[in-house]
Design a protein around this nucleic acid. Structure first.
Lengths: 212, 212
DNA sequence: GCCTGTGAAGCTATTCACAGCT
DNA sequence: AGCTGTGAATAGCTTCACAGGC
């Protein structure tokens, strides 16, 4: 099965392919896509193998076709509704950012324990109380969630979401979360990342890739 | 030289050690720290080697001493001032998040091109116009910056920061940025990460680590 | 010629497994 | 007995290098 890193790069390639398509490009060679993505051409060809698409030696990759192949490989068959728990500064920024961002994803429910936010509509998204997580997640058949609550509440939030059937979590709180077997979790931890940047900036090393 | 992943884990260990210290723990064995971090004990021991600290077979690691050793290895000698460019929803969330968060880091200057924000103080941080990047960065001797501008402006922002002497960047805009040799850049891309979560959540794979 | 796809090589990261210590 | 530190083994990822095609 494709690795984490490969999947990350495929997402990136697709974004770059869409941008190229928008600029009117029809075809792209592996070395061109590699330059856009900041990886080697061999890496691009290897990654493209995993989605089962083949380019032609004559014209490289067809921008539209490769983009669609990646989509077929990566995307969920239908639209994915996402829950967001924690409507603080970061939560609001995420709500604002994702509104209309992608036809494949959208935040369909927000949750917070502040009574001043519950039942409000924030950036087009209805805010529920955290007690309603089980009901709303089940009712809307939500499979993914973003956690942007304070560290102290992240674990109970994750547990509630997983019990309600969520299979994928994107956690912004600065704590490692325990989740049941079969739930996939990814952390985005600004502090840890910043410490890394600080360290390597001082070592005067160049470059690195994306994720990690 | 230590790898990206090792550095990320060391940061994490230190956070966990501090939390343990706050709970009154004096010593921790590699398997305990490993459990907290979600890695193997062998990984912890290997990582600890890189900072040059040694525990004792009798009591494992001294929580305080290891935490300090990691600090000596990771931290900059003096306080690090950070610039933040782009005071939109995300930028404000970052400002709010970092205020008083760490004695080692703080955001010492914000930049935006909205005249309504320039010269305001937002979450305790003065906002300058983007034209002032060269002057302010040099004057405050800023070595690190976070980029939270729209994608279309990220590259010019990065270029301006690097010319002014910034050596480390944390980029939130969904674009790959070109930076001069010797500048370290790390991307935090929510959309890409979310697509990964979506993919693996559907594969019913369990777990994964941090950074990746 | 310059491209793609891919086996094989090369690297990097992680884990094993055990000597040595208490 | 149970721990740490670490050489050696393994697993995972990336790049090389070349056959085959236009």
């Amino acid at each position: 099965m494709a690795s984490n890193k490969t999947i990350g790069r495929l997402s990136l390639y697709r974004r770059l392919l869409r941008e190229s398509a928008a600029k009117g490009e029809q075809n792209l060679y592996s070395h061109q896509l590699a330059a856009l993505a900041g990886v080697t051409p061999a890496q691009v060809r290897r990654d493209v193998m995993t989605v089962g698409y083949s380019g032609s030696p004559a014209h490289g990759y067809d921008v539209r076709a490769l983009s669609d192949s990646i989509g077929g490989f990566l995307d969920a068959p239908e639209h994915e509704g996402i829950a967001l728990v924690g409507v603080g500064n970061l939560g609001r920024a995420l709500l604002a950012y994702f509104v209309g961002r992608s036809p494949k994803f959208s935040i369909v429910a927000a949750f917070d324990n502040d009574p001043g936010k519950v039942n409000r509509v924030i950036h087009g998204c209805r805010c529920y109380s955290v007690e309603q997580i089980p009901d709303v997640v089940r009712e809307k058949d939500i499979r993914m969630a973003m956690i942007s609550v304070p560290a102290s509440e992240a674990q109970v939030t994750a547990t509630a979401l997983c019990s309600a059937g969520v299979r994928g979590l994107l956690n912004f709180a600065p704590v490692r979360l325990w989740v049941p077997e079969g739930v996939y979790i990814e952390d985005m931890d600004v502090t840890l990342t910043l410490e890394r940047v600080s360290f390597f900036a001082r070592q005067r090393v160049g470059q690195k890739g994306l994720v990690k």
